[in-house]
Simulated assay, not measured.
Amino acid sequence: MTTTRDIAVVGSGYMGGGIAQVLALAGHRVAIADVSAEVAASNLERLVGEAEQFVTDGLFPADAVERIRAGITAADSIEEAVADAAFVEEAVPERIEIKHETLRRISAAARPDAVIGSNTSTILIGSLAQAVERPERFLGVHFSNPAPFIPGVELISHATTDESAVSLAEEVVASTGKVTARVGDATGFVLNRLQYALFHEATQLVDEGVATPEDIDTIVRTTFGFRLPFFGPFAIADMAGLDVYAFCYASLQTRWPERFATPASLAEHVEAGRFGTKTGSGYLDVPAERTPELVAYRNRAYVAMQRLLDELGPAPIAAEPTGERA
């Protein structure tokens, strides 16, 4: 059973507003605050209007508008929003000076036992914690855009974050139906470090004339990206074979010996004969006897994904055709 809590979301733009929506739909009492009472009130009306459209599109439950109207209030100030909150989520713009000033106001006005989370995408949580009174109650709680529909949330502790603060944040996020992962306090955390690594390599391919942005997107969507809703990079590597990965690294090193140096952990696994699912041990240690079950799941998952894509049709990215070519 979900525990209903008083929660504040400071910063009611598209990220903060989406977070407020899912918290209200989970049954919490949510106060939103922004640079002024007028901005917060205006954003609340926007959130209601968005919810109406989401209901029409079948993305929110039929009673979502009523629940959001009942569950979210627009506060006159940050101090008013956080006064009674058990959990506060800061979602102001990604500039450390703005976040520092906001976090000072939050921690000065909030209850001593209130847990404070930041929705920062890349800024070190330890750096932000410098502005928080009783920083042991502070951590990163990083939702992804669009917050109502992306299920994963990063939880990032700094050096002195208390376990009880992390546990409460996990409970709050879990009440919304989302999935949390605990990660260390490193610039970019996990999500953006991986996302930007892929984007960087994609731009290199374009700059080298290997492929166009359109063709690179097609390859990502229809090959390894097709696997990612079901399996992360370690599961994919284990299923492909870590010995195969080692050979591929060696091939890439003929052109980029440093950029694609074989990871030490991969070399250790291969040297020890741990090749992934085919040997029953690798990064994830999937027992060999479960490999047929895993392969069957994988095949069903990929067929189901293709059916979903066929049903949805292509994303409206490319321009609509205007007529026959001359």
Rank of each mutant, 00 (worst) to 15 (best):
residue 38 E to S: 14
residue 230 F to L: 13
residue 196 Y to Q: 07
residue 89 E to K: 03
residue 313 G to E: 05
residue 170 E to R: 14
residue 114 A to S: 11
residue 217 D to L: 04
residue 265 S to Y: 13
residue 177 G to E: 11
residue 99 K to R: 10
residue 278 K to M: 11
residue 31 A to Q: 13
residue 144 S to D: 00
residue 153 V to S: 09
residue 267 A to G: 06
residue 154 E to Q: 08
residue 74 A to K: 09
residue 74 A to S: 13
residue 86 A to F: 12
residue 306 Q to P: 00
residue 223 T to V: 05
residue 106 I to G: 14
residue 248 C to E: 14
residue 182 R to G: 05
residue 319 A to W: 10
residue 203 T to H: 10
residue 186 A to D: 01
residue 300 R to M: 11
residue 55 V to C: 03
residue 163 E to F: 00
residue 238 D to Q: 07
residue 12 S to H: 02
residue 131 A to I: 04
residue 270 V to I: 06
residue 195 Q to P: 08
residue 141 V to K: 01
residue 163 E to P: 00
residue 281 S to N: 08
residue 239 M to P: 00
residue 120 T to E: 01
residue 286 V to C: 05
residue 45 E to D: 13
residue 66 E to D: 15
residue 318 A to N: 06
residue 207 D to V: 06
residue 252 L to N: 05
residue 25 L to D: 00
residue 304 A to P: 00
residue 82 V to Q: 08
residue 74 A to M: 10
residue 54 F to L: 10
residue 150 I to A: 09
residue 26 A to E: 05
residue 151 P to N: 05
residue 311 E to D: 14
residue 240 A to T: 15
residue 211 A to W: 08
residue 266 L to F: 10
residue 171 E to F: 11
residue 301 A to L: 06
residue 71 G to S: 11
residue 222 T to D: 15
residue 158 H to A: 07
residue 263 P to E: 02
residue 10 V to A: 03
residue 95 R to E: 13
residue 200 H to F: 02
residue 225 G to C: 12
residue 146 P to A: 04
residue 119 N to H: 02
residue 186 A to N: 09
residue 227 R to S: 01
residue 175 S to V: 03
residue 227 R to E: 09
residue 215 D to V: 06
residue 310 D to Y: 08
residue 135 P to V: 11
residue 291 T to H: 12
residue 21 Q to K: 14
residue 133 E to M: 01
residue 260 F to K: 02
residue 195 Q to N: 04
residue 238 D to G: 08
residue 58 G to R: 03
residue 265 S to M: 12
residue 156 I to V: 15
residue 175 S to M: 09
residue 180 T to A: 05
residue 151 P to H: 10
residue 319 A to S: 13
residue 74 A to E: 08
residue 104 R to A: 12
residue 54 F to S: 04
residue 217 D to P: 07
residue 103 L to C: 03
residue 193 R to I: 02
residue 41 A to S: 14
residue 321 P to A: 06
residue 226 F to P: 01
residue 297 Y to K: 09
residue 77 S to P: 09
residue 259 R to V: 07
residue 26 A to K: 05
residue 74 A to P: 04
residue 254 T to M: 06
residue 267 A to C: 00
residue 319 A to M: 13
residue 216 I to E: 04
residue 218 T to R: 14
residue 114 A to C: 13
residue 325 R to K: 12
residue 170 E to D: 03
residue 289 E to F: 11
residue 236 I to T: 12
residue 152 G to K: 09
residue 281 S to W: 00
residue 218 T to H: 12
residue 28 H to L: 13
residue 89 E to D: 10
residue 54 F to T: 01
residue 86 A to D: 14
residue 135 P to I: 10
residue 57 D to P: 01
residue 115 V to F: 13
residue 284 L to E: 13
residue 154 E to T: 07
residue 128 L to E: 01
residue 288 A to H: 12
